[in-house]
């Protein structure tokens, strides 16, 4: 666990910042909610948006019902903040983990220790888990606190599920990032490639919702298997989706480990 702990130690500033950003963001979203709720034109405006735009914000009309706090949170926080932003963030951070050691050539020193490459990769992955869990604790707590402050109620149970189900989604994003991180020797390359991929998957999923014709396309997207709005508003937890995300995480990690083990660490 030493590598995981070390990895965590060196990234605590980023984790802290991330949490602060999301605490601020969440408080702001809930803070403006009472005003939005009262301005009757808003919902009408949303309903009149082109379908393609709506899907970017999270799909069905039901999930975009801003007359309830859940609907507003889904649109303003979860769909882009969680699915897109956090997905990109964790994929981004993890895509630097190995590529940075290779680019800075510290990998030489690290590998001179009696640690296998598989272990290095797994520990780097494990080092990310606490930050995923932490953000999924601070944010719902802020939501509950702020909701109580503006006299709104929200289902604690499904708020919990919403965040619980995001953990495998974010883990899969990390595993994807790690795979890019062992493939590319340069941090910049690994970063941009993985950001592009996560973003493309998000768009693909949105497109796939548009028409039956494209519906199969979304299945290769990670975000297809995590829909916070569905859990939070329709109280529908997609167990299969969670299982698939865990499975995908495992498969991506195994591929990353095999790739890393076979890789020549050359002096560039």
């Amino acid at each position: 666990m030493k590598i995981a702990i070390h990895s965590l130690k060196t990234s605590w500033k980023g984790i802290l910042l991330l949490n602060l950003v999301f605490i601020g963001l969440t408080a702001m979203v809930i803070g403006i909610y009472p005003n939005i709720k009262e301005s009757s034109g808003m919902q009408e405006y949303i309903n009149n948006l082109p379908e393609s735009i709506l899907y970017m914000f999270g799909g069905s009309e039901l999930e975009l019902d801003i007359t309830i706090l859940e609907g507003f949170l889904n649109m303003e926080l979860y769909q882009w903040g969680w699915v897109l932003l956090l997905g990109v963030y964790f994929a981004f951070v993890s895509s630097s983990l190995i590529s940075k050691e290779i680019e800075n050539k510290t990998i030489d020193m690290l590998l001179s220790n009696p640690v296998s490459r598989g272990r290095i990769l797994l520990e780097k992955f494990l080092g990310l888990v606490p930050s995923i869990i932490l953000i999924n604790i601070t944010t719902p707590l802020v939501i509950l606190g702020c909701a109580a402050y503006i006299n709104e109620t929200i289902s604690v149970e499904y708020l919990f599920y919403t965040h619980f189900a995001s953990i495998p989604y974010l883990l899969a994003a990390c595993a994807l990032g790690l795979l890019f991180s062992v493939i590319f020797d340069e941090v910049r390359r690994a970063n941009t490639m993985v950001i592009g991929t996560v973003f493309a998957m998000y768009i693909l999923e949105a497109l796939s919702l548009l028409s039956e014709k494209y519906s199969a396309m979304g299945k290769i997207s990670l975000s297809h298997y995590y829909d916070p709005g569905k859990i939070l508003i329709q109280h529908d937890v997609d167990i299969t989706g969670i299982a698939i995300l865990f499975l995908v995480t495992g498969v991506l990690l195994i591929i990353a480990i095999i790739y890393f083990q076979r890789k020549d660490i050359a002096v560039v």
């Binding site: 060196t10 020193m109 640690v115």
Partner: peptide
Amino acid sequence: ILEIKEMTGYIPGELNLYGNL
């Protein structure tokens, strides 16, 4: 290789250490 590394030390030609530590 792991058993070997247990009993081996290494000084690389181009020494790159963790600058932030």
